[in-house]
């Protein structure tokens, strides 16, 4: 099942030129660009691991793309996303976030039902991928 999180996730995967253009847009807006990765695709998993530091002082997307290339070299089998953080007063939050790398095989999510007190049922989703320990999930 294809993971749809963040901007552009219903589109085909972005090419590198498209990613470069988006990153350049973030830079031109004055946002700090971050590269994050994870192997836990659960939608509530908000805080992904960061690749390096937020890139505040970069003027051109080529610098970010170089970092993305090295991140892919190490974590090419995981989800990688790029986000643009707007530090300006009143926003102070992520303005754009999109997935730039995904595992070859995305097993999707299971819906689990738990019978609770009375006739109540609690629902939860769990990624099939997370049955394996961290680091072994997509290899």
């Amino acid at each position: 099942m294809r993971l749809t999180q963040g901007t552009f996730s219903f589109l085909p995967d972005l090419t590198d030129e498209q990613i470069t253009a988006q990153v350049q847009y973030c830079i031109d807006q004055g946002w700090a660009v971050n590269i994050e990765f994870t192997d836990d695709p659960h939608p509530r998993n908000t805080y992904w691991d960061m690749w390096g530091l937020p890139m505040f002082d970069i003027r051109d997307a080529a610098g970010v793309m170089g970092e993305l290339a090295s991140c892919r070299k190490v974590y090419g089998d995981r989800y990688i996303r790029i986000s643009g953080f707007d530090a300006s007063h009143g926003w102070e939050s992520v303005r754009l976030s999109f997935i730039v790398n995904r595992p070859a095989n995305e097993p999707g999510f299971a819906l689990e039902r738990q019978e609770s007190d009375g006739r109540r049922v609690r629902y939860t989703t769990r990624s099939y991928a997370t049955q394996l320990p961290e680091g072994e999930r997509y290899s």
């Binding site: 970069i58 003027r59 051109d60 997307a61 080529a62 610098g63 170089g66």
Partner: peptide, 11 residues
């Protein structure tokens, strides 16, 4: 060095 090169990219 890479950090500096990253900063200088495009310039």
């Amino acid at each position: 060095t890479k950090e500096v090169l990253k900063r200088a990219a495009g310039g």
